[in-house]
C-alpha cells in the first residue's frame, strides 16, 4: 500500500478542512455573540462533545462496514448545518445544530481514522499520515485567509453558504472515489490474502 491509494481520502478530506477551516474561527465569533455569557458559550460546546461521544458508541460496531458511507454522511450533515446557521434565531436551535455537528464530527473523525488505517500498512503509515496532515492543514490555512476576505466583501452568512458548498463537494468526492478506492483496497487485501495462502 502506498500514498496513492489514499489520495482520494486526502483530497476529499482537504476539501472538508477547507470548508471547516473557512468557517471555524468566524463560527466561534458567531457563537460567542449567540451566548450573552461565557457559560452559555461553554454549554454550546459541551453539547457538541456530548453528542459526539454518545453517538460514537452507536457508530463503533458499524464503522468497519460503513466507513465510507459515514464519511460521506458527515459531510452532507455538515453541509445541511451550514445552510441552516444563517436562519437560526434562537439559542435553542444553536444547541440543536451543535448536537448535529457533534454527530457529524464523530462520523468524520472515526471513519477518517478507519480509512487511513485501511489504506496504509503497519510499518509504512508515517508518509501517508504526514501527507494527510500536510494537505488538510494547508487547506485549512488557505481557507481561513479566504474566509476573512469573503466576510469583509460579503457577510458571514455568505461564508456559511460557501462552506456548505464545499462540504457538499467533499461528500460527492468521498462517494465517487471512496467506493472505488475502498473497492481497490479490498481487492488488494484479498490479493494479499491469496499470496499468503500460496
Amino acid at each position: 500500500m502506498n500514498a496513492l491509494n489514499a489520495q482520494w481520502l486526502i483530497r476529499s478530506q482537504s476539501i472538508v478542512t477547507l470548508a471547516a477551516g473557512m468557517i471555524y474561527p468566524y463560527y466561534l465569533l458567531f457563537l460567542k455573540n449567540a451566548g450573552n455569557s461565557y457559560s452559555k458559550y461553554g454549554l454550546a460546546f459541551a453539547v457538541f462533545t456530548v453528542s459526539s461521544a454518545a453517538v460514537s458508541q452507536w457508530l463503533a460496531p458499524r464503522l468497519d462496514r460503513h466507513g465510507v458511507r459515514m464519511l460521506a454522511a458527515s459531510s452532507l450533515g455538515m453541509a445541511a448545518v451550514m445552510l441552516a446557521f444563517p436562519w437560526v434565531m434562537s439559542y435553542g436551535l444553536v444547541l440543536v445544530l451543535q448536537l448535529v455537528m457533534g454527530i457529524c464530527n464523530a462520523m468524520q473523525k472515526m471513519s477518517e481514522r478507519l480509512l487511513i488505517a485501511d489504506h496504509t500498512q503497519h510499518g509504512s503509515r508515517g508518509v501517508v499520515i504526514g501527507s494527510f496532515h500536510f494537505w488538510t492543514s494547508a487547506a485549512s490555512g488557505f481557507a481561513v485567509i479566504l474566509g476573512g476576505f469573503l466576510i469583509d466583501w460579503l457577510t458571514i452568512d455568505a461564508l456559511f453558504y460557501a462552506s456548505a458548498l464545499l462540504y457538499a463537494l467533499s461528500a460527492w468526492a468521498v462517494w465517487r472515489y471512496g467506493r472505488h478506492g475502498a473497492g481497490r483496497a479490498a481487492a488488494a487485501e484479498s490479493q494479499r490474502a491469496a499470496h499468503r495462502q500460496l
Binding site: F134, W135, A138, G141, F142, I145, G148
Partner: peptide
C-alpha cells in the same frame, strides 16, 4: 508540491499582514 503550497501560504499570510 508541498513546498510550493507552503510558500504560497506563507506569501499569502505576509500579504495579509
Amino acid at each position: 508540491k508541498k513546498s510550493i503550497a507552503l510558500l504560497l501560504l506563507a506569501a499569502l499570510s505576509l500579504y495579509v499582514y
